[in-house]
């Protein structure tokens, strides 16, 4: 009896051992200084998300350079707050790192019960990537330009609707910023993730959305969506003809998604510096750049101080928008 159970386990074991051949571990016996053990790179979102892909592209390269395995661990939940909180409270010994995004700063302003402070509980290591959002509409609305959109929205306030993958996402906040800067009134229809919002847009249920440019472009090319502008301060190579909101005269309309590498507060400066220099090299590698590009991301890096400044700037900016427009949650 026991034998048959054992045999089954053995069979399972053999196949899975084969499976593990696909995976390459870089565990090498470390020596003296940091790092002497496996480093955990926490991703506060589920596998397959943009952030997860960044981590999984960078982790093996970082491991190779540090001579220690860097393992990606998904600690998803509560719009990233569970993972971020775990990192904020982790030992600052350089063995727990995380990938964060500007969503963290938006959420911290939006939810009362965020258990950590995104500015003071982390030491930024470096920026990781920029993502570009594109303002798009459906052909049915007949809107041809941003100016047209503003005119139509002003003519009938609250009539046009826009979707987002959820409250406090960059897509949502970008539109709130747009509303604030242009004095328009658009009705927000939140979704759980962007897939549902895109479906309802294609089927004509909602009119507008800020959508990641690489996701939106295929629909624009197929004539199912109409692109109006990009939210970043510079035009995007994927759609060089598409103007930026700033070019169109909407001052301060600068909305992007960024991703960054962070460590818990108190992580020794030499470790942060070492990680920063390794990440800078990795993020400049052509294969990393092209892997990111396929995800609609532009690999980028900066110094710890620059990253801290960027976080601070965004934090205050979103706090203002959220307060001014009475956006609330919880």
């Amino acid at each position: 009896m026991l034998r048959s159970l054992f045999r089954i386990l053995l069979a399972a074991l053999a196949t899975l051992a084969a499976a593990s051949l696909c995976q390459v571990t870089y565990a090498q016996s470390g020596g003296r200084a940091w790092p002497t053990q496996t480093i955990r790179l926490i991703v506060p979102f589920t596998p397959g998300t943009g952030m997860d892909t960044i981590a999984r592209i960078v982790a093996p390269k970082l491991g190779e350079r540090l001579g220690q395995a860097v393992i990606v661990e998904n600690k998803a939940g509560a719009s990233g707050n569970i993972g971020a909180d775990a990192v904020a409270k982790a030992a600052p010994d350089g063995y727990t790192l995380m990938v964060g995004a500007n969503t963290m700063l938006m959420a911290a302003n939006l939810y009362k019960s965020v258990p950590f402070n995104p500015l003071t509980d982390f030491v930024p290591i470096s920026l990781g990537a920029w993502g570009t959002l594109m303002l798009a509409t459906i052909p049915k609305t007949g809107i041809v330009s941003v100016a047209d959109l503003i005119a139509k929205a002003k003519a009938s306030p609250g009539k046009l609707t826009y979707g987002s993958p959820g409250i406090g996402t960059p897509h949502h906040m970008a539109m709130e910023l747009f509303k604030d800067l242009t004095g328009t009134d658009l009705l927000h229809i939140p979704y759980k993730g962007s897939a549902g919002a895109v479906v309802d847009m294609l089927s004509g249920s909602i009119d507008l959305m800020f959508i990641p440019i690489h996701v939106g472009m295929p629909y624009v090319k197929a004539g199912k969506l109409k692109a109006l502008a990009v939210g970043s301060p510079k035009r995007h190579p994927m759609a060089p003809d598409l103007p930026t909101l700033q070019e169109l005269g909407i001052k301060g309309a600068e909305v992007d998604m960024w991703y960054a590498f962070l460590a818990p507060k108190g992580t020794p400066a030499p470790i942060v510096a070492r990680l920063n220099s390794e990440l800078r090299t990795i993020l400049a590698l052509p294969e990393v750049k092209s892997a990111f590009e396929k995800q609609g991301l532009d690999a980028a890096s900066n110094s710890s101080a620059e990253m801290a400044a960027l976080m601070k700037k965004d934090y205050t900016r979103w706090a203002l928008i959220i307060k001014k427009n009475n956006i609330s949650a919880d």
């Binding site: 386990l9 399972a12 074991l13 196949t15 899975l16 051992a17 499976a19 593990s20 995976q23």
Partner: peptide
Amino acid sequence: VGSVAIFNYGLQ
């Protein structure tokens, strides 16, 4: 033994 092999090493 089986679990360590399957979950830790096999499925990582």
